[in-house]
Structure formats: C-alpha cells, structure tokens
Simulated assay, not measured.
Amino acid sequence: MKQLDIEAIETLKEVMEDDFTILLDTFFEDSKLRLEDLRSNISSEDAEALRRTAHSFKGSASNLGALALADLCMRAESLGAKRSLEGADTLVNQIKDEYFAVEALLKSYL
C-alpha cells in the first residue's frame, strides 16, 4: 500500500489554497498528541481509549490521503474494539514510524 494518495493531496492543496499549510500544521500537532495518547492508552491498559484514539487518528490520516497510516490505525482500532492490547506495542511503533514517514512527505508540500 502506498503511503500517500498524491491525487487527494493535490486536490486538498488546490481547494484549501492558503489554508492548506494550516491544515498540515494542525495534522502534525494533533498526530504527535495522538501518538502520545496511544502510548498512554497501552500503559494504562485501556483498550477502549486505544480504540477511540486510533479511530480519531485514522480519520485525520485518511482525510489527508495517508492510506498506510490510516490502515495501521484501523488495525489498532480493531484491536481496541476487541478489548485486547495483544501486539499493541508493536502496532503503535509501526504507526509512529509510518506517521514520521508521512510527515516528511507532507512537509514537501509546504
């Protein structure tokens, strides 16, 4: 699966014009908070909170065309929905790595 839907990014950039930079900056800030929350959800063994955080992260990643990141978040959401944290550490590490790869790609649009 590719990391970014380039067509979606180009469309967003065209439609949002000057606000596109604000959108990306907000995504970067929110994503870093969500990464912290995912870690915290695991530390506190709160599968429902993991589900909610991953769901929210999935939505924002999807809106920006970050397909692989959205897919990983969907897997974390499903894990939380099953009230399980088995493998969550590994999955959150994958989400973190994918996020930073996406962030680097998106910064090229600024």
Rank of each mutant, 00 (worst) to 15 (best):
D5E: 10
I6P: 07
E7S: 13
I9Y: 10
I9P: 03
T11M: 11
L12V: 03
L12F: 07
K13R: 15
K13V: 00
E14A: 14
V15K: 12
E17I: 00
E17S: 09
E17K: 15
E17Y: 08
D18L: 09
D18P: 11
F20H: 07
F20A: 00
T21N: 14
L23T: 12
L23S: 08
L23Q: 07
L24A: 08
L24P: 06
F27M: 06
F27K: 10
F27N: 07
F28W: 09
F28L: 08
D30H: 12
S31V: 05
S31H: 09
S31F: 04
K32F: 03
K32N: 12
K32W: 05
L33D: 10
L33N: 15
R34W: 09
L38A: 00
L38Q: 02
L38W: 01
R39G: 05
R39N: 11
R39A: 03
R39V: 02
S40R: 07
N41S: 14
I42C: 01
S43L: 03
S43N: 11
S44Y: 03
E45L: 03
A47K: 12
A47G: 06
A47S: 13
E48C: 09
E48G: 04
E48W: 05
E48N: 14
R52K: 15
T53C: 11
T53F: 06
T53Q: 09
A54W: 11
H55S: 04
H55L: 03
H55K: 12
K58F: 09
K58H: 09
S60E: 05
A61P: 05
S62E: 04
N63L: 05
L64S: 10
G65H: 11
G65M: 08
A66C: 12
L67R: 15
M74L: 08
R75L: 03
R75V: 01
R75Q: 13
R75W: 00
A76R: 02
E77N: 06
E77Y: 02
A81M: 11
A81G: 09
K82W: 04
R83L: 06
R83Q: 13
R83W: 09
R83G: 00
S84P: 06
E86A: 12
G87P: 05
G87C: 07
A88M: 01
D89T: 12
T90Q: 08
T90I: 07
T90P: 02
V92S: 00
N93L: 10
Q94N: 13
I95E: 02
K96V: 00
K96Q: 08
K96G: 01
K96R: 15
K96I: 00
D97L: 10
E98N: 13
Y99H: 04
Y99E: 02
F100P: 00
F100K: 13
F100T: 05
A101F: 10
A101S: 12
V102L: 03
V102M: 04
E103P: 06
A104D: 10
A104T: 14
A104S: 14
L105M: 11
L106T: 08
K107C: 02
S108G: 09
Y109K: 15
Y109D: 04
